[in-house]
Computed example of a mutant assay.
Amino acid sequence: MIPAQEALQRLRDGNRRFVASVSSGEMHLARKVELTQQQEPIAIILGCSDARVPAELVFDQGLGDLFVIRVAGNVVAPSQVGSVEFAASRFNTRLVVVLGHSRCGAVLATVEELQRPAENQSINLRSIVDRVRPSVQELMRTELKDDMPSLIGRAVRANVRASVDHLRHGSAVLEQLIRHEGLLVVGAEYSLETGVVDFFDGV
């Protein structure tokens, strides 16, 4: 079992390699056979489904290193909580990272929905928008409503914090692991512009 802080440092080091375009070569499939029997991921990543933010590349990690859960807007619903519980309990993974990113389409869609509600929005898409909505709604009551880039930037981080909070306090299993087993849940934002991941919540 790798302690949370050590895992976090590995992710930071990997992101530095990614930004510098210096891969460690960990992405190769040499471990494919070894991993058929077991896996020991160093971190659980709950990230956005955006095609520009693949966690293994962003953190320069290899096959079997990350347990990745991806959903638009990095929102937390019961299936995501259950997936985190599963990995943390089954594999003794002690680091959970909620990974948002700049210019998040799900956040933008939520802002647009609040500005001009759609008449026939899919109930499935609405379930994502409804989970992002609380993070956006408060900000839209401030002067940020007239500054869309700043609004989206602040809303991305607010949405990450909401997901982190949900994982920390919305699961008895995770609460116990945090309290007694060293589980750490942190929030981070990936910059599409620079490739840098900023760990800003819980580190």
Rank of each mutant, 00 (worst) to 15 (best):
L114G: 15
T110P: 08
R131F: 01
V197Q: 03
V96Q: 11
L114C: 10
I178H: 02
L108A: 08
N124F: 14
L139R: 07
I2D: 10
G100M: 05
G100L: 02
M148G: 00
R141D: 13
A188L: 12
S163I: 07
A155E: 05
G100I: 04
F86S: 00
V84T: 09
E189K: 06
N124D: 08
L192A: 11
V76P: 02
G100K: 02
D198L: 04
N159E: 06
I128M: 11
R12I: 14
A158F: 03
R133A: 07
E6S: 07
L46P: 00
E6F: 01
R116Q: 14
V173K: 15
R103K: 13
S79R: 08
V107M: 04
A118M: 06
V173E: 15
I123V: 10
A155R: 00
A87S: 15
L35Q: 10
E193Q: 14
F86T: 01
F86N: 01
E193H: 09
L57T: 03
R161P: 00
S150F: 03
D60E: 02
L184V: 05
T110F: 07
I128Y: 04
S163D: 06
K145R: 14
V129L: 13
S21N: 13
V156P: 03
S102A: 06
P134S: 07
